[in-house]
Amino acid sequence: MTAVTDDTIAVRRSWHDAALGFCRRQPLGTFGLAIVVIAALAGLSAEWIAPYNPTSNDFEAMTQPPSLAHWLGTDQFGRDLLSRIIYGARTALIIGFVSAFVGGFAGLVLGVGSAYFGGTTDLILQRVMDVLMAFPLIIMALAVVAIFGTGVQNVIAAITVPLIPRCARVIRASALSIREVPYIDAARTSGFSHARIILRHMVPNVVAPFLIMLTAFVGQAILAEASLSYLGLGVQEPTPAWGLMLQGGAEEYASTAPWIAVFPGLAIALTVFGFSLFGDALRDAIDPKLRER
């Protein structure tokens, strides 16, 4: 029993040290992580911390500038902007994480599979990836939304599909270099199952680029939702969503009631900024070639 506990402590301490080390070496990355954590907390606890109902109209308080009652002001419908931004964090993170994880994992499976099996499988998969890669992103998203309509899950689908080939391409490149390593061949000849070899030996070796891509994808997905919103086909009212808030607000009120446009814009920019900083730092930390000596 004691031995196990000691082990756990040791593991904890090393995690703790690693985290501290990360913070010390990567001040920008830590800052980015802090932004991400704040956004995540806001999204998770929206019910408790949002001062108002994010969807209820208040015609007595339309387009009011920031005040004590409404810290960030109100929008055209008199809805509290702070509350909408807090709830919007949830929408943004759901879209960001789900798209990134689904797109990333699909890419991981296809990339590793393509590299491991090689030959015809690889050739065919690569042609499919080529097609998806070359296909204009926003056009595919527009088509997907036009086919299925504008629900949150459809918007996620529209954003996810284009992420898959980009992840698969990078993972395949990393996995290919591992595949040539002699011990993989050795494992094959000694009769280990494909699944075992892939999971035990290949996947761990592509985790680094995979994680870096994931953090980048979250930010890209949030931005993609904003672009779709600008074309009118993102998340729809009354769901609080940053891209949606920016679309109506930025177009109509940028000059007369700038707070309606500025705060959701800041929310998007800051969050994506946070993810990018964190992702960069993660890359620097994981990739030994870039690590300082």
């Binding site: 931005l223 930025a250 994506v272």
Partner: peptide, 14 residues
């Protein structure tokens, strides 16, 4: 990174 993080339509309108 700010350049990557800002929605381009927003930048244009502004």
């Amino acid at each position: 990174i700010a350049g990557i993080a800002t929605p381009s339509f927003w930048l244009g309108i502004m």
